[in-house]
């Protein structure tokens, strides 16, 4: 276990010096500063930052993690020639990658948001952003161990991003119209859980009081997401979105020929 964290520490300190990570953090910081300064209403700025959280975080997290995995291939081989287990090496790479992306998020978006908001909304923003980064990193690692060559891996990851960010909502829209004669509360709740990006968006939307627009259903959702239980639910599902791809990739990686 200590070997794993030692390894994680060294890989982490490598990744945070990476140009892409520095640029990623810088971009977020710039966007946050610009929005909070130009937009007189901080709520509106937060909404724009939410778009960054929902689009940029998954995209960068997934692509960066995939590329990082392929670029580390020889190093991983070298490590595995040492008396280290495959799980240790894989998890070290995963945690180092996810934690540096999270660090970039906290420094870039998290701190400016915390300077303007100190409520549950800000906490929810940080929590979901962090968990979403973890989930996207896990999904990317899963795609990377599945596909042997880099181009294919990046292709899969881009498709997955496109699916979660756009296609999935189209499917939701179709489902909601197809079954509009039935009570849809539970179904809608379930549908949000099946997409980490949607879940993040909805948990933020309902905290921003959009629920009133939804009539009584919205009140139901708000009661759910707005409560502590709702935060546990959101956090729990996002955690599952990290855990399940991670378990799957560990199973593949354990018996993979390198």
């Amino acid at each position: 276990m200590t070997a794993m964290w030692t390894l994680t520490r060294y890989i982490f300190s490598d990744i945070i010096r990476n140009k892409v990570i520095v640029l990623y953090a810088g971009f977020q910081l710039l966007a946050a500063l610009l929005l909070f300064n130009l937009e007189e209403n901080p709520d509106k700025a937060l909404l724009s930052l939410l778009n960054i959280e929902l689009i940029v975080i998954p995209l960068i997290s997934m692509i960066f993690s995939t590329i990082h995995y392929y670029n580390s291939y020889e190093f991983i081989e070298m490590l595995l020639a040492q008396p280290l287990g495959r799980r240790q090496v894989f998890l070290s790479e995963f945690f180092a990658c996810a934690l540096s992306l999270v660090l970039a998020f906290i420094l870039g978006l998290g701190i400016p948001v915390l300077l303007h908001f100190q409520d549950m909304l800000a906490f929810n923003f940080l929590l979901t952003g962090t968990l979403l980064t973890f989930a996207c990193t896990a999904i990317a690692f899963c795609a990377a161990v599945l596909a042997r060559d880099k181009a294919r891996g990046i292709g899969i990851v881009l498709l997955l991003w496109f699916y979660f960010a756009l296609v999935y909502d189209g499917i939701v829209l179709m489902i909601l119209f197809t079954f509009s004669d039935y009570p849809l509360e539970r179904l809608t709740l379930l549908l949000t859980a099946l997409n980490p990006i949607d879940l993040t968006r909805v948990s933020m939307m309902l905290r921003m009081d959009v629920s009133a627009l939804m009539g009584y259903t919205g009140a139901l959702f708000k009661e759910f997401f707005g409560s502590f239980r709702g935060m546990l639910y959101t956090g729990g599902i996002l955690f599952l979105w990290t855990l399940l791809p991670l378990i799957l990739s560990l199973r593949i990686f354990r018996n993979k020929d390198l």
Partner: peptide, 20 residues
């Protein structure tokens, strides 16, 4: 207009799909 017909679609508020 979509929300008018099916209020549940408010769950998609601020998604990329909707802005497209």
């Amino acid at each position: 207009m979509v929300v008018e017909r099916n209020p549940f679609t408010l769950i998609l508020l601020r998604s990329i799909l909707i802005s497209f």
